[in-house]
Each structure stands twice: as structure tokens, then as C-alpha cells.
Simulated scan of single mutants.
Amino acid sequence: MKWKSKIIIAAAIVLVAANLYLLLKDNSKVARSFYISEWTTAKVQNLRETMKTEGVTTPLEEQQVYFDERKGSFEGFLVKKGQEVQSGKTLFYYSTETYEDAIAVLESERDSLENQLDALEDKWDDLKDLDYKATRSVLDDELLINDYSVEIDLYQTEVEISRLESEIEKYDEQIDSIDRKMPHLEETSDIDGVVKNMNEDLSNPIITIVSKESMVKGMLSGDEQADIEPGMEVTVSLKNKDKTYKGTIQEVSIFPEDEPNVKMKSQYPFTVVLDKQVENLAHGTPVEVKITKDEVKNAITAPFSSMEKDGKTNWVYTLENGKVQRQKVTTGLHVNSVQQIKKGLKKGDTLAMAPQQVTKGTPTFYTPMQLDKWEKTMYKNLRKKELLKQTGKGFLSF
């Protein structure tokens, strides 16, 4: 039996030596085979990059009503704190006594001017009659002098009448102006809501009204503020509850909440408007906010761990027809462990889960035997010659 053992050992040595020669030889056409334990396929997925933060519900609208001393003295409130009001509801009104007194004074002065005007108009009529009679009489020196005097008096009377008419017109305009203000000597609500606060000492704002509808307010760090924009979609959820509500970023402030301080990180307010209002949601309720920063639908994707970065170029290793191919790809959105592939892969392409050390050529690969998928029917129609050929390839690939 010794000679048989020697033959087997010799054959094995020759086989290993031949494989080593072919693998290590410069410009060898035989490439190293790779053992690939895990692989996957390029998939089509909807990718969404989100950011989580916290917020609190606040009134959607707020109206602050001010008392204006120029309109008159305060007459009285018509609402109470906590009262629900509708748009257009009168909240308080001013005293009209000052305006009524002013109108009375203006009307008295206007009436005096009108009396003067009536007297001047009567004088003008008399002068006009004298001027007419003078032109019909015989002309002499004395009559001519009297005629000139009448004409001068007529002219002066006409000037005075014009002045009085202008003065009366100004008084009418002032009276009309006050009359127009009279219906506005009250303050009304611009929104539907609830009276949140009232200052009976007349300090401003004298009344604050808030809407029953809610929005969400939160804070962002400086880095977060740079990434969040109005119009981004938001999902809001109440803490310790499963139900969620859709909304949209309404505003992201460029000004920090507090005065900037080099020793503290600035916080920037943002607001969210809900698509549908939540009934019986108290203002000040804490909520969780998930902001969608970016979204790509029907994206071709691959595991981020399968990517190899070489400078600015990204690569994956595709598996096709028993060969490993280093494939250049263009990447897009990266979310957690998933990478969008804009160019270089198509749906269903097989690729290694981890980068391989392929420096040239298109080497072969082999994978672990999966006995759970072994089926005898797979090999019934396989000829013995083909079976030996495939077994030999597998042996040579080590």
C-alpha cells in the first residue's frame, strides 16, 4: 500500500504546485477565486430621511387687542376671561361723549358762519340792485363816483362770501370725519377663539384672544436649523399614544429664542401646522415630532456595507455567471444601512454584502453549500460527465 500512498501524495503536491504557479505567475489568465459567504440583490425601495425632536402644542392664531386713548375714554368690557367669541364680536367700546361734544362745538361754529354768510348774501343782493339802477340814470360826476363805490363794495362782499363758504366746507369735513369714526369706537375680535387674558387696569394688550385650533412649536439646534425648511412634511404623535397626525413645517426662525451667548448653544424656534385639527387637544400638550428631511420613491438600493469608496468614486462587487465584477456606481440618499444607487445597478442585480479585494480581471467566486436547499431532482438530469466537470472546477477553485 505504500506505493499507492506515495502516488496520491505526489499527485496532490503536483496539483497544489500547479495551482500556485498559475495563481502567482505574472499575467496569468487564472484569477484567484473568492469565498463569498453573504450576498444580496439590488432592491427597489422608498427611502425617507427623518429627524426626530420634541415640541408642544400652542394656539394656531393669537390676537392681541390694544386700548387707544386717542379714540376716547374707556366705557366698558363686553366679554369675560375664558369666554368663547366669534370673529366680529365686540370686546369693549369707547365713550362717545367726547366725540359728541366735539361735533356740537363744530356745528355751533359752522352755524355762526352760515349766519354771516346769509347776511353777506343779502348785502350782495342789495349792492347789485344799486349797481343796476346807477347804470340806468343820467351819467354825471357824482353818479360816476357812487357807481365806482358800489362796484368796490360788491367785489369785497364776493371775496368775503367765498372765504366763508370755504370755512363752512372745512367744518363740514371735520364733522363728517368724526361721524365716520363713531361706528368704530369699539374693538372687535378678528378670530374665532377664547378670551385668554384681560387687563382691567387697561394696560396693553388689554385683551388676548387665542384660537381653539392648535399648531406645534419646537426648538432646533444650529445644525438642525440649517437642514430644516418650511414645507417639509411632519408626523406628530402624542406621547404614550399610538395615533399620529400629519403636518407641515410652517416657519423656521433665523433668530435664536434667547439672546446669543458664546457660552450657550442657540436654540431656534420652528412651527408646524397640522393638516387636520385634533379635537379636545389642550394647548401645552407635549408631542413627538418626526420631520421628513428628504424622500426618494422607487429608488434602486444596496446595503451601505457593500459599498467601497475610493476617493470620490464608489464601487460595489456584482456576482454574475460565476464571476466577481467591480462595478462603479453613483450614489444618492443614504438612510441608516441602506444606500440609494442612482446609476450602475438595476433591480435584481446580485452583489456581495462586503467589498472584495479584486485588483484586476474578473475572478470567480464560490459560496457555502446550503444543504437545506439541496434537492435530488436538481441532479437527476445532470450527466455524470457534467457532474465530474463541475466538481473539478470546484476543487480547482481552492
Rank of each mutant, 00 (worst) to 15 (best):
K4G: 12
I9M: 04
A12H: 12
L15I: 10
A17Q: 08
L24P: 10
K25T: 13
S28G: 06
S33V: 01
F34K: 04
F34D: 05
F34Y: 14
W39R: 07
W39Q: 10
T41Y: 04
N46Y: 11
L47A: 02
G55S: 05
L60M: 06
E61I: 00
E62P: 09
Y66G: 06
D68Y: 04
R70K: 09
G72A: 02
F74P: 10
V79D: 02
V79N: 08
E84G: 10
Q86D: 13
S87K: 14
K89Q: 07
T90D: 12
Y93R: 15
T96A: 12
T98N: 13
E100G: 03
A104P: 04
E109R: 02
W124C: 13
D126P: 01
K133G: 14
S137M: 11
L144H: 08
E151S: 13
S162M: 05
L164H: 07
S166Q: 13
E167V: 04
E169N: 14
D172I: 11
D172Y: 09
E173I: 12
E173P: 07
D179L: 12
R180E: 15
K181H: 14
M182Y: 02
I191N: 02
G193N: 00
D201N: 04
I206E: 12
E213V: 08
E213D: 12
S214G: 00
M215L: 14
G218D: 01
S221N: 12
E224Y: 02
A226F: 11
G231H: 03
V236T: 08
K243D: 15
T244S: 12
Y245D: 03
G247H: 00
E251N: 15
P256H: 00
P256A: 02
N261C: 01
N261Q: 05
S266R: 09
Q267P: 10
Q267W: 08
Y268T: 05
Y268Q: 01
P269T: 04
F270W: 04
F270C: 01
K276Y: 12
E279C: 09
L281E: 03
G284I: 05
P286F: 04
K290R: 07
K293D: 13
K309H: 15
K309M: 15
K309C: 05
G311I: 01
T313C: 07
T318W: 04
E320F: 14
G322P: 12
V324R: 05
V324N: 01
Q327T: 14
V329K: 03
V329I: 10
T331S: 15
H334P: 05
V335F: 01
Q340S: 10
K343N: 03
G344C: 05
K347T: 07
D349E: 08
P355S: 15
Q356A: 03
Q356V: 09
G361L: 06
M369E: 07
M369V: 15
W374C: 04
K376V: 13
M378S: 15
Y379C: 11
L382A: 12
R383S: 08
L387A: 12
L387K: 10
L388S: 13
K393T: 03
G394T: 15
F395R: 08
